[in-house]
Design a binder for these strands. Sequence first.
DNA 1: CAGACCATAAATGTATACATGAAGCTGTCA
DNA 2: TGACAGCTTCATGTATACATTTATGGTCTG
Lengths: 238, 238
Amino acid sequence: MAEGRRSRAVMDLRDRVLSGEFPAGARLYEVQIAETLGISRTPVREALGQLEREGLLERVPSGGFAVRTFTFDDVADAIELRGVLEGTAARLAAERGAEPARLHRIEQVLDGLDRATAEESYDFGAYEALNAEFHALLAGLSGSEILRVEIERAARLPFASPSAFLRGQQGVPAFHRSLIGAQAQHRAIVEAIDLREGTRAEGVAREHARLARRNLEYVMFEDRSLIDRVPGLSMVVG
Amino acid sequence: MAEGRRSRAVMDLRDRVLSGEFPAGARLYEVQIAETLGISRTPVREALGQLEREGLLERVPSGGFAVRTFTFDDVADAIELRGVLEGTAARLAAERGAEPARLHRIEQVLDGLDRATAEESYDFGAYEALNAEFHALLAGLSGSEILRVEIERAARLPFASPSAFLRGQQGVPAFHRSLIGAQAQHRAIVEAIDLREGTRAEGVAREHARLARRNLEYVMFEDRSLIDRVPGLSMVVG
DNA sequence: CAGACCATAAATGTATACATGAAGCTGTCA
DNA sequence: TGACAGCTTCATGTATACATTTATGGTCTG
């Protein structure tokens, strides 16, 4: 039994909250959850605290936990925040210099992304995985563990993560074209870091996050049927 | 019945960790703490989890919690991070426009800071309180709750907070002069926001945080006797 | 009929008992 | 003497029992 009941409760509850099984603002009852999972209240309580830390739940003043609710503006700000943090990672990597090994790895990922987006061999699944890896590598490129963890934190709000809207947009016509643009930004960020152009790296990384905001607007205002495909958007009211 | 045993345990443990009573890296034993506080392990456990969220403790892989350790670079990066976030708050306030009531309040605080730093009526205690209020107001000036909370989080690492090094430097000769410079930056930030000069506001706010970095360097490398006066510096190794 | 108060039920907060697993020690054997 | 096995100890993980608080619903009163 590798992981303990606590971790399993965390994973289970996280999935259920993100899937929308618990509506936004709904209170979570320890006893009910404990019975469902067949464990005692103690690890459930710990799991609820963990999910609060992740930003998915909030403490109710009178006691207990409830599913957190977000407005459209909250989501937009969370995306902006990620852009600012990734921009800082890019700038610091440029200013301080990134380790060659790390730069080499992220350039390999760039090549992989090129192949995944090429017309003749378009592979959405590969793109999704490589995109996540690119952003993870970028977060650590400056060597600052403090910053890396903070970016990870900011991207843990599911709708703020770099991969949040990929799945939702998979079928949209203009989507493949937007991937080409995104990939151009990826390359520009790494090139700027390589050339020690900190301001450029920061600016492009910020702008890159704006793609997510545009996708958010599309999903929320143009084609709401896609909402269910973006994890965590069930927590957005309005 | 004020706050429940959990909150009291949090406050007590936070103080003791920051005071250096538990050395960096030291493990915290639930039973021992519970006995000291005269409560059971359950609220102690919750308190430890809370302090992990605040970044003061970390989970030990084999189980339990230990006092987190930071390097000098970690502290410098945490300060840089706060500067980036406060810079973003200033920029967004400028770009989006700040509520007049909020702007008015922060300008009143600016006037108070002027009085507190004036030669004839220098009042360190007042400066400390007003400085904290200035930074709290700045964090909320853009109206983004997401950002405000994130700044609060970043400033919860005690050595990264805007007031961290004030007390430590209280007796240093050049200190009063540096306060004058800091106050000039405060005014420049608010002026830039008022004039909707987002880039300027962001830049000055970032530079403002660099004062903390300079103070950190002074305390760590010039006069280490001051270390004990800055809360949380006991967690820094080296 | 509105409002306040009490009773009751249910959920969380806290304490304690039990289970599990990790770390250290001791004794023995190579 | 060194190393390893097994045991012992102790700390945490988990379960359960108890206490306290909160929400609710119904009734009584003005």
